[in-house]
Design a protein around this nucleic acid. Structure first.
Lengths: 155, 155
DNA sequence: GCGAACGTTCAGAAATTTCTGAAGGCTGGG
DNA sequence: CCCAGCCTTCAGAAATTTCTGAACGTTCGC
């Protein structure tokens, strides 16, 4: 509820926190910019200026954040620039996709189970496989529950 | 179900997959070594030999993996070396802790909510905050459900 | 106590990731 | 058709992460 400088600082702090959680630096900064703006949409140029970063790195970061499904292109007629904005269900889709690597892990573990004779190692691998399978099946339901609850409380 | 060379290859592949999911390289290799061994426990020396890595990097990696709660020291009398093995509920605890960064994110977002005037940005931040709060409260229950199901099927 | 076997720490080297800046490609207006 | 504005790509520079190897503690057997 304070000044504009403060808003940027807080945004930057959130970006750094996301970096701590494993996100790429510039991608996190771009994301924070979208979170904290009251504009309808931002262009690559806006971001470059706002963040004080080169057009090149902004371009790469935007690409990443878009692949994550957090922002989307928004068509604006009468403008040659590409406009972007956050997607509505950004966070739930992000969380869902965070679990995409789990598919890969699952494959690798399943291969492990096949490659070892029965014994302690195999039991360990089976346990790991079962857990990741469980996650893969339960997470979508979890996300859905959140969205449902939300739509109820805001009819 | 094939040779020893194969086991190592499969283990190494799982390690690389975990790296892809964000884990540190040597930590992932150490973890895979524990997953795939039929020994009761491994020492730093064992790992160094098995992985062909220096004692120094093994030491650092073991420290990390232990902080993650995936392995534990096991007392072996009559041996000067430190022995380690995987913890029983390694995967569920890991998943639980994966959500530790969420606390930090939650703090940062909450600060964001306070720092902006009512408007689109604020609504976005509130949504994000609510979602992470939801996760924080639901994940433990999810993990518990898995363990319960598992203990039922293996009485 | 002394010596040997292990493990840890840390400075520096190596590898990887990340950013920049310049060159080039589209697109729409004139 | 040409030009201007905007974005993307890419090679190289900068920063960061990760590994090694040597020096230093510790612990146990003797």
């Amino acid at each position: 509820m304070t000044g504009e400088t403060d808003r940027r600082q807080v945004a930057e702090h959130l970006a750094l926190t996301l970096v701590g959680a494993g996100m790429q630096r510039m991608a996190a900064r771009v994301l924070a910019a979208f979170l904290f703006t009251d504009e309808d949409s931002l262009t690559a140029g806006d971001l470059s200026e706002e963040l004080g970063a080169s057009a090149g790195s902004v371009s790469g970061a935007v690409k990443m954040v878009m692949q994550m499904g957090l922002i989307e292109r928004v068509p604006v007629q009468g403008s040659r620039r590409e406009h972007y904005r956050m997607r509505d269900r950004a966070w739930t889709t992000l969380y869902g996709r965070q679990h995409a690597p789990i598919d890969d892990i699952l494959d690798a573990v399943a291969r492990g189970v096949e490659s070892v004779e029965p014994g302690p190692a195999r039991e360990r691998l089976v346990y790991m496989r079962d857990f990741y399978e469980f996650l893969l099946s339960e997470v979508p339901a979890l996300v859905e529950r959140f969205e449902q609850r939300r739509s109820e409380s805001r009819p």
